[in-house]
Amino acid sequence: MDYALKLQDLTKTYDSSDFILDRVSFALPIGSVMGFVGENGAGKTTTIGCIMNTLFRDSGSVQIFEKEMNDSDVELRESIGIVYDGDNFPGYLTAEQLCRIMQGTYKNWDTALFKKHLKKFQLNMEQKISKYSKGMTMKLAIATALAHHPKLLILDEATSGLDPVMRDEMLDIFLDFVSEPNHSILLSSHITSDLEKIADYITFIHDGRIILTEAKDNLIYNYAILRCKEKQFALLDTEDIVAYRKREYQIDVLVSDKKVAEKKYASITIDHTTIDEIMLLLVKGERV
């Protein structure tokens, strides 16, 4: 399988904090969307910083289209579009000026496509970015990321500042993007419903560590939650337990194979699960 992005044992420490990005590994196959999910401070932005070389890793490897990207790999960066959460661009610029800057920066910059997106998003080219709302600045960042025909989109909480209607529109744009051959997306988010809509794979990160990386369909259709009583929980085979969380009247147990669990534990209530619930169990729950 060819990968748009492959991280192997990526490690990063900071002098000024105790946070450690600890041997992060995952791979994004070409033509797919990877949801990168975790709570605030889990290490999503640090990981993306290490991918884009805005942060320097201590060890491990990051391969983009099977190549380690260093500072001189200008061509490789031509093929990446990035959107950060918040203000990507200085407020004193207008979209028109930003367009001219990008025209002088990207070989494949497509002014017509940029203007088309801006028109679709109802953004004024002459208005200063400082006058845009948060949603508008995110739309501008997305239009900018798409306008140089990248093959890999890296979106760091790109939908977090948008209302549900706008988020839905953006997700459709991302789906359009990924429907083109060889296009891939890494979408970091804590809004799991977005990931459920467009992701092919989901990687969970917590406290700087990858706790699970899995195909989304597998998570939705094969993962399940057992609602156990204390006694039932004690009888469970530990190999079946991905994570568990003690609640007031029951113990929620995440299992990775619903059919096997249904056969083995016929007396226990088994529910379908959501990405949100899986994340909560992985983050707040315990491992055996």
Binding site: N53, Y84, G86, N88
Partner: peptide, 11 residues
């Protein structure tokens, strides 16, 4: 803004 960081991702 995040422009200083963003510039590092440009080609």
């Amino acid at each position: 803004s995040k422009w200083e960081k963003y510039k590092l991702t440009l080609p």
